[in-house]
Design a protein around this nucleic acid. Structure first.
Lengths: 228, 228
DNA sequence: CGAAATATTGAAGTTATTCAACTGGAGTGG
DNA sequence: CCACTCCAGTTGAATAACTTCAATATTTCG
């Protein structure tokens, strides 16, 4: 299978946008559209050497780390267009793990190709810096840390997913949550029982319909507005 | 007052390290060692246009944002060597505010000088990318989010300050906390009363001595090990 | 010195967690 | 096809932890 950044619908989110055509082709030649991954397979693990960035083409993934006590802490969920591995550039070694939650396709972009491209193309250089800067400003932990009730954290989490799916042209009204309640809880810093109860309450308030992992969002603005 | 990156003891943390001498001088010519700032003055505010990065030379500062409801949320505290403003590069506009907690000195580094330097020096380019990457990997929110008790959050907060002061060659055993209990609470997502109580408990356990804002750390490893 | 801000401490109230029981699907194998 | 099992999810009750409200103490600064 061939990587065709030139025609990739996600290019604007990825690394190759804003590259002059010649550079884009050059980078593209170095990119391998990874073989489809099965749910449960890892893109990389903490401690692995860093030598490439990854771009999600399809599917869902999650980033997690191990706590001191050994158990898992979920740090984020990824959709098509997300770039993975940026935080390992400096250390040259991954400090988190990324695992596929569903079957996925992921592009591998060797980091030396990025460096080479950046040294010859100011546009590429800028793009990389801006990608990093944007990620810094995103701070998804506001969701978690902002002294919010369980309900507003869960609502905010769903609103975030809806917004991201919408931006990517995916169905944002009804979709399947690929992660367990425990994953959501780990991400939001709530017990999985609390996540469950919150979803029930959101459903009672007619903001969403939840059946197991199937979700239908009835009132997106309502979700964003919960502040309790 | 003149900026003298060449002789700055913080260069390795800042932007000008790993620059060839010629480039360093060039950048240095564009850097202004800001006039000393008084406690309470802002380096920049949310909504301000972004056109420069800032490097802390001395003193303490804090970053904060406004919540939806209008009140302040503290996002971090800064020591000499920290670079401020990186998260605004992409948007071209600041989304957080930085204010001096004590009298400070802060260098202003015009961003177009950085861009120019980067386009001519692969080292500078790399350095900027790595600075951004490192900041991404730091994730100070682990402290806050990691499902920890109030005591371990406060202990972790102190341990983090100790480590950072140590790395910078500042007195890490005894120093003055420049921020209020309310600031610490906002940062750690705790009520200020809870911060106060936690400090009292840490003192009872002989990990620290706290008198108001004066702190003496008696058992740094002990601080790091609290997990309850 | 006196006022305002900051910090500490106590008691009551809330909220999420924990422990436990139970339910419902998905997958397995007879 | 139907049990059987396992895991994820839901729900209830008791508990623990933090917050809130209130009173008091200590600094700081005009």
């Amino acid at each position: 299978m061939e990587a065709v950044c030139a025609t990739c619908s996600l290019a604007s989110l990825c690394l190759c946008s804003s590259l002059p055509e010649r550079e884009r082709r050059r980078l593209s030649d170095n990119v391998r559209l990874a073989w489809p991954m099965r749910a449960g397979e890892h893109v990389f693990r903490a401690q692995d050497a860093f030598d490439a960035l990854f771009a999600v083409r399809s599917g869902w993934l999650k980033t997690y780390a191990r706590r001191v006590d050994g158990d898992e802490r979920v740090l984020g969920f990824h959709l098509p267009g997300d770039v993975l591995g940026l935080e390992a550039i400096d250390a040259g070694q991954h400090d988190v793990s990324v695992v596929a939650l569903t079957d996925c396709r992921v592009c591998r972009i060797p980091y030396d190709a990025v460096t080479r491209s950046a040294s010859q193309s100011p546009e590429m250089q800028q793009h990389l810096v801006r990608l990093l800067s944007r990620r810094l400003s995103e701070r998804d932990c506001w969701l978690i840390c902002d002294n919010l009730s369980a309900d507003s954290r869960v609502a905010g989490f769903l609103a975030d997913l809806v917004a991201r799916r919408h931006r990517r042209g995916l169905d944002a009204e009804a979709f399947r949550l690929p992660m367990s309640r425990a994953d959501i809880g780990s991400y939001l810093n709530l017990a999985h029982e609390t996540v469950s109860r919150s979803l029930t309450r959101l459903e009672k308030n007619e903001l969403v319909e939840v059946r197991r992992r199937k979700i239908r969002v009835l009132d997106p603005p309502g979700l964003r507005e919960i502040r309790t």
